[in-house]
Design a protein around this nucleic acid. Structure first.
Length: 577
RNA sequence: CGGGGAGUAGCGCAGGUGGUAGCGCGCCUGCCUUGGGAGCAGGAGGUCGGAGGUUCAAGUCCUCUCUCCCCGACCA
């Protein structure tokens, strides 16, 4: 490709909305352009990178026997209503109506569609197992799209689904996927962690996330340097012991606390530590209000709450709902005297004595509340959000924290969808059984941004070879010098003829422009054709290094080629993390 | 959804108190230049997000509306 023909509009200045380097450089380098919030054009360079990632993902899926297919973007509401996710997934779905008013969604994922297909097409255990996948656009109406390709509303995802008649078979595919994902990470040169995204305690379900390391990542990872435990903070159980407070129970007392709502305010107003205050948060679930209680200095992990309540629809109640139901503003809600509420308390509350809770009346709190005497807890559970320094659930050493970008997620679904959609097959004995399912997602477009996060410097992107839009850029320094043009054309011809991906910068612009664009776009290897042609040499430089090596152009084409390919083989950019 | 900010040329931005629309980059033409975003000269390009209003006069003031960006999203 000649740069003079390449549609790659580069920008000198960062776009005003770019907060992170991958966003800035992908826009400035002419890879992507924003169409509207969270929706992008992929320009030719961006499409080439995307295609390379796409191909790697496809190859690794094919290698483990997954079969590629394609499912629709437009999906009817009925399928989603069968599993209850029309409401559960609700606001994140892009919804639309046809001219008759029928409801549809732009698919955020395809469990319903694939299960519907298999329900109709697979009748016997003899047809199992089967694993299919697709690489296609997904649509999620994110609360707040940002960070360019990292949190987009339209994005490219690989999603695979497997169907089984037994758990062993599911586990085999699960392990295959795990290995395939590791290969993908290696092939795109990303440093990553595989983290547990499930406690493993519930129903044999299992889930792992593949997280690309990046300081700007939105996944919080906890890991143990001693035993190698790695998990998301949401899925890390708390295994520490809580201190038993041995104190005589004092009489319950309601005190006036005008305008004092938050734990910090209550602590300073009453002069007690946050450890002696108990937060009571009201949630709404399928069966009504739920109160979650936890010690004042800790945070509730809503994922744990959903899990112990076996209710994924749980959400925090709004202040209006609370006021309407209980006649008390949030901030003064507490467990004493409350009715029609299921009370779940974190273990941190269990051995507390004489603590502070909301007064169930505006501007009041109770002091010296005690469990059993003043209120009862319906269920004790681990609701605590794990954080750095908590004991490792495996070995007890203090956990460390880091951040990453979630690229892959594999999950043993079990029979959740097959049962909800009555997707059954007939087993050896003639009994109808629900499919045992797994699903496996990979963010293809997001991978592009994750790579840039790990491979860039102050000048631009430094692509790993496997995903670079082109491998070589030939920079002809002075287009008015016939000799330079001739040599540039010759090298361009040699590389092109041998199937190398190369751009010849034949633009009539000053060298600075060419060098800066080459650095910004991130071509791995730059061949500078300049003054040294007169002494029979060009200069070759790898993007991540300042070292320049001279390559003689006096030898044969094949000598030049083998020298350039030798340099290509040694290309190995260092990741930033 | 709550709070804040912003919509003016392709991009980045400036335009007290109302008075005929500006700068830098980019773009076009010519000359010149070519090892890290050159120089000179000349030029093209804007219904100032949209609708309504006040006024002799609105980018500027008022009302409504759309979009975008940032922070937060209930931790009681």
């Amino acid at each position: 490709m000649r740069f003079s023909r390449l549609f790659a509009p580069t920008l000198k200045e960062p776009p005003s909305d770019a907060e992170i380097k991958s966003h800035e450089y992908l826009v400035r380098g002419g890879f992507i352009r924003k169409v509207t919030a969270g929706v992008f054009d992929y320009l030719p360079l961006g499409k080439r990178v995307l295609d390379k990632i796409w191909k790697i993902v496809k190859e690794e899926m094919d290698a483990i026997g997954a079969q590629e297919m394609l499912m629709p973007i437009i999906q009817p509401a009925e399928l989603w209503k069968m599993t209850g996710r029309w409401d559960d997934y609700g606001p994140t779905m892009m919804k639309l109506n046809d001219r008759h008013g029928r409801e549809f969604t732009l698919g955020p994922t395809h469990e319903e569609v694939i299960t519907f297909l298999m329900k109709n097409e697979i009748n016997s255990y003899k047809q199992l197992p089967v694993t299919v996948y697709q690489i296609a656009n997904k649509y999620r109406d994110e609360l707040r799209p940002r960070y360019g390709l990292l949190r987009a509303r339209e994005f490219v995802m690989k999603d695979a689904y497997s169907f089984h008649s037994d758990w062993e078979s599911l586990d085999e595919v699960y392990q295959d996927m795990r290995k395939a994902y590791q290969k993908i990470m290696e092939r795109v040169s990303l440093r990553y962690l595989i983290i547990e995204a499930s406690s493993g305690a519930i129903g044999g379900n299992e889930s792992h996330e593949f997280v690309s390391l990046a300081p700007i990542g939105e996944s919080n990872v906890l890991y143990c340097e001693k035993c190698g435990y790695q998990a998301s903070d949401e899925r890390t159980p708390y295994v520490g012991e809580y201190e038993k407070i041995e104190e005589e129970e004092k009489p319950l007392e309601r005190v006036s606390t005008p305008g004092v709502r938050t734990v910090e305010q209550v602590a300073s107003f009453l002069g007690v530590g946050p450890q002696r205050i108990v937060k009571s948060l009201l949630y709404v679930g399928r069966r009504g209000f739920i109160m979650a209680m936890i010690r004042g200095d800790l945070e509730i992990n809503e994922e744990k709450l959903k899990e112990v309540m076996k209710d994924q629809s749980i959400r925090l109640a709004t202040p209006e709902e609370v006021l309407e139901k209980f006649g008390v503003p949030i901030g003064f809600i507490g467990p004493v005297g409350i009715e029609d509420v299921y009370i779940v308390a974190d273990e941190s509350v269990r051995y507390l004595k004489n603590f502070v809770v909301g007064g169930m009346k505006e501007d009041t709190h109770y002091i010296n509340a005690n469990i059993g005497r003043d209120f009862n807890v319906d269920m004790w559970a681990d609701l605590r959000m794990a954080k750095e320094g908590d004991p490792c659930p495996v070995c007890g050493a203090p956990l460390k924290a880091t951040k990453g970008i979630e690229l892959g997620h594999i999950f043993k679904l079990g029979t959740k969808y097959s049962e909800a959609m009555k997707a059954f097959y007939m087993d050896e004995k003639g009994d109808l059984k629900p499919f045992i399912m797994g699903c496996y997602g990979w963010g293809v477009s997001r991978t592009m941004a994750a790579i840039v996060e790990q491979y860039h410097d102050e000048k631009g992107i430094i692509w790993p070879l496997s995903v670079a839009p082109y491998t070589f850029i030939i920079t002809v320094v002075n287009m008015n010098k016939k000799e330079q043009v001739r040599v540039g054309e010759r090298i361009y011809e040699i590389l092109s003829r041998n199937g190398e991906e190369v751009v010849l910068d034949d633009r009539m612009v000053t060298p600075g422009v060419k060098f800066n664009d080459a650095d910004l776009i991130g071509f791995p290897i730059r061949i500078t054709v300049g003054k040294s042609v007169s002494s029979g040499k060009v200069e070759v430089k790898m993007r991540y290094s300042d070292e320049r090596v001279d390559v003689s152009i006096q030898g044969s084409d094949s000598q030049i080629l083998s020298k350039l390919l030798e340099i290509k083989r040694s290309y190995s950019p260092p990741p930033k993390v």
